[in-house]
Simulated assay, not measured.
Amino acid sequence: MPSPEKTAVLYRMVLPDHICPYGLKARHLLRSRGYKVDDRLLTTRAEVDAFKEQHSVATTPQIFIDNERIGGHDDLRRHLGLSVADPNKLTYRPVLAVFVIAAALAISIGIGSGHGLLLIPMMERFIAISMAILALLKLQDVERFATMFLNYDLLARKWVPYGRIYPFAEGLAGVLMAGHLLPWLSIPIALFIGTIGTISVFKAVYIDQRELKCACVGGNSNVPLGFVSLTENVMMVAMALWMGMREAPLWTAALFGTI
């Protein structure tokens, strides 16, 4: 005999100035799992309030399957055996996403410019782009970044304004290094902030063994302070040293050429 059709009743908020995104997600999830959805819209604030009071719930959407209230979107995911994101869970995903995009851009620029996949130019672009993107994320909320930064950065603890200056310095160095512009400025900046950052992270994680969140992608992240955070700073130092060694002969020639 054919299996009975799976049905679900979905109550979701659709007001003139607001459509509940979780209601749309719940409807899509139900349909993708083979449910026929009885989609019931709550189109006024009065209807929403009356529904909440009737079913003694605080939020919408609400899903019913086989006349049993399942709950909201997250409850539906649990009912279907799916995972539910933990907003407090530590993860390296934001930093890894930055590095993947930066690497993809570095490769794309190399191929598009005719330089191909030469390792050294590609690594230079990758580090510079990573610095610029990470600075952009910090600059979304400088104060929140600076506050989290105080948890572990040694210089910021001594001089609080450094936490607000850091993302601007990192962004400036990254942008200049991407175009090999003003090396006399970008190299000292990257070397300075990278060295301080490396020492600070190493001390906090490997000497003091503190469990902290990293402010590397901004002050509202759940990235743990650890090896990946250390890598960000080491890359800056390596980039500065490499560019410094490459520029040294030019600076020497310019200096002695003027004597």
Rank of each mutant, 00 (worst) to 15 (best):
I109V: 14
I109E: 05
G110E: 04
G110T: 04
G110W: 00
I111R: 09
I111L: 15
I111T: 10
G112E: 07
S113F: 12
H115M: 07
H115L: 08
H115N: 09
H115W: 12
L117C: 10
L117H: 09
L118T: 05
L118A: 14
L118V: 04
L118D: 10
L118C: 02
L118G: 09
L119R: 10
I120H: 06
I120D: 01
I120E: 10
I120C: 02
I120A: 07
P121Y: 02
M122S: 08
M122C: 08
M122K: 02
M122P: 05
M123P: 01
E124C: 06
E124V: 04
R125Y: 09
F126M: 15
I127V: 15
I127M: 09
S130N: 05
S130I: 07
S130K: 09
S130Q: 05
S130T: 11
S130G: 05
M131S: 10
M131I: 12
M131Y: 11
A132D: 11
A132M: 15
A132Y: 15
A132L: 15
I133S: 05
I133G: 06
I133K: 04
L134A: 12
L134H: 11
L134V: 13
A135V: 13
A135T: 12
A135I: 13
L136S: 09
L136F: 15
L137E: 04
K138R: 12
K138Q: 11
L139S: 08
L139V: 11
L139K: 08
L139I: 13
L139Q: 12
L139M: 13
L139F: 14
L139R: 08
D141W: 12
D141Q: 12
D141S: 14
D141M: 12
V142R: 10
V142Y: 00
V142S: 06
V142H: 03
V142P: 10
V142G: 08
R144L: 11
R144F: 01
R144C: 01
F145W: 06
F145R: 05
A146Y: 01
A146H: 00
A146R: 01
T147I: 08
T147M: 05
T147A: 10
T147G: 01
T147R: 11
T147C: 03
M148F: 02
M148H: 03
M148I: 09
M148T: 08
M148P: 03
M148Q: 13
M148W: 00
F149T: 08
F149D: 14
F149G: 07
L150K: 13
L150Q: 14
N151T: 14
N151V: 09
Y152Q: 06
Y152A: 02
Y152E: 04
Y152I: 07
Y152N: 06
Y152P: 10
Y152K: 09
D153Y: 07
D153I: 08
D153R: 08
D153P: 09
L155Q: 07
L155F: 14
A156R: 04
A156K: 00
A156M: 04
A156V: 02
A156D: 06
A156Q: 02
R157Q: 11
R157F: 03
K158A: 06
K158T: 01
W159Y: 05
W159M: 00
V160T: 01
V160Y: 00
Y162L: 09
Y162S: 09
Y162W: 15
